[in-house]
């Protein structure tokens, strides 16, 4: 996983609440055998609508999603996070996240930053006045801001996830940090334990 310290990118206002994972990526798009390529399925039902925010030129290259409350509810599919990342999103800002979605995001390296509802509204207002405007999310300082200082506030993220993202450590990376302990344990395994193939 790449280290995440700070990111500045085009903000995308998603003015909906309760966006569940079926809306983020419908089940019919789950048949792939890779972790990549899910961008086509992202918000599939809404993408047909020319007025949908991602179909507007100013937001096409968005990387900071500013969503309504209760983002990521529903099925536990990890594909929802992959789809957002595959499209190019680095951060989702919302007043409330579903637990499993938040957990999956942390695992995969997508920053799910929880802000006050007022901040979401302020960012929406800012983007309304400045379509295609950029937003900076600083994980080190735990702040979200706009270049002209229109919005300047803090966000919440649990300290363990923040630490992992700053260090660029996924669960596997953390466990591999205990490689010595694993190797030491392996040395104690009895010889009669079964193996599936012999050297």
């Amino acid at each position: 996983m790449e280290k995440f310290t700070s990111h500045t990118g085009v903000g995308v206002p998603l003015k909906r609440s309760n966006v569940d994972t079926d809306q983020i990526i419908p089940a019919v798009y789950l048949k792939r055998v890779t972790r990549t390529g899910f961008e086509d399925g992202l918000f599939a039902a809404w993408r047909n609508d020319p007025a949908f925010v991602l179909n507007q030129d100013s937001y096409k290259n968005g990387s900071v999603l500013v969503a309504g409350p209760d983002f990521g509810t529903g099925s536990s599919r990890e594909h929802a996070v992959w789809a957002l990342q595959n499209y190019g999103f680095k951060v989702v800002l919302s007043a409330r996240f579903a637990d499993i979605f938040r957990g999956n995001s942390g695992k995969a390296g997508l920053v799910a930053a929880q802000v006050d509802e007022k901040v979401v509204q302020a960012l929406w207002d800012y983007l309304e006045d400045n379509p295609g405007g950029e937003i900076t999310v600083d994980l080190e300082a735990q702040t979200v801001s706009t270049p002209g200082g229109e919005v300047q506030d803090s966000f919440d993220i649990d300290p363990y996830t923040r630490w992992r993202l700053l260090e660029g450590l996924d669960d596997i990376g953390i466990t591999l940090g205990h490689d010595d302990a694993i190797t030491a344990y392996e040395a104690t395994r009895p010889s009669w334990k079964p193996v599936t193939q012999r050297a």
């Binding site: 996983m1 055998v33 890779t34 996924d170 596997i172 694993i182 392996e186 079964p194 599936t196 012999r198």
Partner: peptide, 30 residues
């Protein structure tokens, strides 16, 4: 520690894909 890991075609593809993306190998194919 896991003594035996069984895999099949439906739930393993993205796991292998993840290994490839991170340039990792299977620790204990045996």
């Amino acid at each position: 520690y896991i003594d035996l890991h069984l895999i099949h075609e439906v739930t393993s593809p993205q796991a292998f894909d993840g290994l490839r993306l991170a340039n990792r190998k299977v620790r204990r194919p045996d």
